[in-house]
Design a protein around this nucleic acid. Structure first.
Lengths: 339, 339
DNA sequence: ATTAGCACTCAACAAGAGAGAGTGCTAACA
DNA sequence: TGTTAGCACTCTCTCTTGTTGAGTGCTAAT
């Protein structure tokens, strides 16, 4: 059914179409790839491929373009990921393993890197904070009557919040309160720390009621607030260079999609890991994503998985994107392990 | 030269043009404002206004549109700021004075609010951290061999950094080190803390050399890094609804401008305060901003001034924008004072 | 000083005429 | 039987042309 020659022709058409964004005709296929066939033969094959659903015609007398099913077949059965070039890999390496002080800058740079080398917008979805491990809580006095609570996770992420405290309380007291909190909570996963336990704490430290109440309040608040995945999109502008987004309505839709965090958060974590997941056009559940493709994968870290990926038009260089994503995933995971 | 009637006509044209984005003709001016004049008379006046440089014609036989000078004249001599409506003011009030736990969310919400009610993208430029007052430094031990430095400013902004420490050192020691740092640095402005003083510190605490060296290193690093203004842009998408940005090239330029932080940082702080500053089209120094207008003002806070503003097409509702900016500036300043 | 009238200009839109690219089919060919 | 040349046909794209309508500037009348 799908003999070698058909494959070759399909590949030709895909490569050509991805590059030019124009329907490709039988003549072009022969020329570009120096086939020892006449256009007429290729036409017959193309008719077959169309019947199989791998190609389609925008109108009777244009060339063919690959259908989404065509891309899917190519991706599944023929594609080979294109790994990063030597210099690209080097840059990535330097970028991440060099100066990894702040987690937020790492994310920023990684996203930047991805969109730079692929020319597609990248997205990174960080897992919710409350699934990480708790490491440390500290209450620090500030000006009279005020204190800061710091909550530190294993990854070095920090959230903090201001609370009111009685002016009479001493730094010593705050320290001992912190200590008790820490005994219970140290190295627990954030989402395991349930309200019942917090209640228990409240009993243990009955004496310093005021401070403790405030702390617990703040803590609950922090845990709630932080239970959100964070979405970082980089290089959104790249998408505007793709000819499919030359019309205003689409651009608006596209940019609206990118601003809508909730949409990304719902991205199913299909990929248990390892594999790079590819969603082509209508394969995306979310309607607003159905005019583009996603290439993404999960990465282990933070005790949970985050997601990292690229988006592009359906006509995207899946091989390059998949290669880049894979490389970045590996290095990020390695980095997180070392930490 | 600029009699009452001319003003009235100029205003008509501006209002009309701002609303429709179409050149407005003599007929329209008469109709819309029920003037007791014939189109012909208005035409004569318009010819005068054009000669004065306040109007221009896209081509011989279209209506007139206000020139940038025309807008400038209007803004300077005729415009009245339009204050927020009662419900708008209420929302703003609730938004800011309600839940002001985290400074970053305040900024986010303020920007959001501005762009929501005006339909223009808003920008907020936060002053560099190192111009705020220093409040507190704390070194906290983490896992063996690691510690966190926290640096807290008067505004509650926090920066932190991980450092390596000898495993042998005790929490006690860290605390005493923190204490010495605090004695020197407490309530100083960040930019006053010079390297010479840090050197002095190093001498005082000669014993715990290793930790102190690391701390100082990190501190220097933090002070350097934090010396940046931060730019937050909100509601960028709104701009795409303006008909002047219906063409792709402009959109790209526009979005590129918004991504380019450095550009905003260079925005001269012309406004000593109080006044709302308006830059119309080519009045902007930066070339990439010359196809749009800015309405902004400084706000005192953080011991320095930040900037807050709106951007729009030259054909923008300056009256509304100026009113909104003023209102927001006032309430933000009040908020910062209370803190 | 204002206005009516009129010829003139120019962008925007629609219709029509090629041009060009690509197809599908048929018949010839190896 | 698979491949190829030839050819009529289809459809988009582009360029041209004509038409319409809004708006102007000028002149002469009020």
């Amino acid at each position: 059914m799908m003999d070698e020659r058909k494959k070759q022709i399909l590949e030709s058409i895909i490569k050509d179409y991805v590059e030019t964004a124009e329907p490709v005709g039988s003549r072009a296929v022969v020329k570009k790839h120096a086939l020892k066939l006449s256009p007429a033969t290729v036409r017959n094959e193309m008719a077959d491929l169309e019947e199989m659903g791998f190609l389609e015609q925008p109108h009777t007398s244009a060339g063919r373009i690959p259908s989404e099913r065509g891309f899917r077949y190519y991706v599944d059965c023929m594609m080979e990921k294109e790994s990063l070039t030597e210099p690209e890999a080097q840059i990535l390496h330097d970028l991440l393993l060099e100066n990894m002080q702040e987690w937020s800058t790492v994310v920023e740079r990684t996203g930047h890197f991805l969109s730079q080398i692929t020319k597609y917008p990248s997205f990174i979805i960080l897992p919710p904070f409350n699934l990480s491990e708790f490491r440390y809580l500290q209450i620090l006095p500030m000006e009279p009557g005020k204190a800061f609570i710091f909550l530190v996770s294993d990854m070095g992420t920090i959230i903090h919040r201001k609370i009111d405290i009685p002016e009479t309380i001493k730094e010593e007291d705050l320290r001992s309160i912190s200590k008790v909190f820490n005994q219970i909570m140290r190295n627990r996963r954030m989402d395991e720390i349930r309200k019942s336990e917090l209640q228990e704490l409240r009993d243990t430290l009955r004496k310093k009621r005021r401070v403790i109440d405030r702390t617990l309040e703040a803590l609950e608040h922090m845990l709630e607030e932080s239970g959100e995945e964070k979405v970082v999109i980089s290089g959104a502008l790249n998408m505007l260079n793709e000819p499919e987004f030359k019309d205003l309505e689409r651009i608006k839709r596209l940019l609206a999609v990118m601003e809508q965090d909730s949409l990304w958060k719902g991205l199913v974590p299909d990929s248990i890991s390892e594999a790079v997941d590819i969603r082509i056009g209508k394969e995306n559940r979310e309607e607003s994503l159905q005019e583009m493709s996603l290439v993404f994968t999960g990465f282990k870290g933070f005790g949970d998985v985050g997601k990292i990926g690229l988006m592009g038009p359906v006509r995207m260089e899946y091989w390059k994107a998949a290669g880049a994503i894979e490389a970045v995933r590996n290095i990020v995971e390695e980095m997180l392990k070392r930490l």
